[in-house]
């Protein structure tokens, strides 16, 4: 039972399996904005070929009571099949991909490349004065790399948002 006095904020990665129909994303997003919940990251794409289903992964934050409320509100949407709180259910994987453009010459450029190597970012585009790195990992790791690139000529970042799955044999 969530206690009223427990105002500690926690982060939650919630996966939602939905019927892939018109407006379903708007319903989910509208629910969050209409009820004042946070969305820190949101990804959506069709999964399960032939069954017309999409998976939405949402990273949000709130008190225990609010997170429970978010799940209950999602679960009662008509096209929602299942809602899973991966953070609460146990160990899980949460990954995102980023494309990071760094523009520079000389030492900064060499340093950017060395750090990219240390972070296992791949070079997917290069000119004499720019790189585009592709990097996959936890959001924290991406944040850290982006921060390191800032003084080295960080020009632009594009991130996918989080895709998440439970570890082990468990499924949504």
């Amino acid at each position: 039972m969530p206690a009223n006095s427990d105002n500690t904020m926690r982060s939650a990665t919630i996966s939602v399996l939905v019927e892939n129909e018109a407006g379903v994303l708007a319903r989910v997003v509208g629910l969050f904005s209409g009820r004042g919940y946070n969305i820190e990251s949101l990804t959506v794409a069709p999964v399960e070929d032939g069954r017309n289903r999409s998976r939405i992964n949402i990273v949000t934050s709130g008190t225990a009571m609010v997170i429970e409320q978010i799940k209950a509100q999602l679960d009662r949407l008509v096209p929602v099949h299942r809602v899973a709180d991966l953070t609460q259910q146990g160990p899980h994987l949460a990954r995102e991909m980023a494309l990071i453009k760094v523009v520079g010459r000389g030492n900064d450029r060499a340093e950017a490349l060395r750090l990219a190597d240390a972070f296992r970012a791949r070079v997917v585009d290069a000119t004499v004065e720019s790189f585009v790195f592709e990097m996959t990992g936890s959001s924290d790791k991406l944040d850290a790399f982006v921060e390191l690139m800032r003084p080295l000529g960080l020009a632009e970042v594009s991130r996918t948002g989080v895709a998440a799955l439970a570890r082990g044999t468990r499924t949504i």
Partner: peptide
């Protein structure tokens, strides 16, 4: 009948 009505405003036992 609506799980989202439970523990929305007042926590219950």
């Amino acid at each position: 009948i609506d799980p989202s009505s439970i523990n929305k405003n007042v926590p219950v036992d």
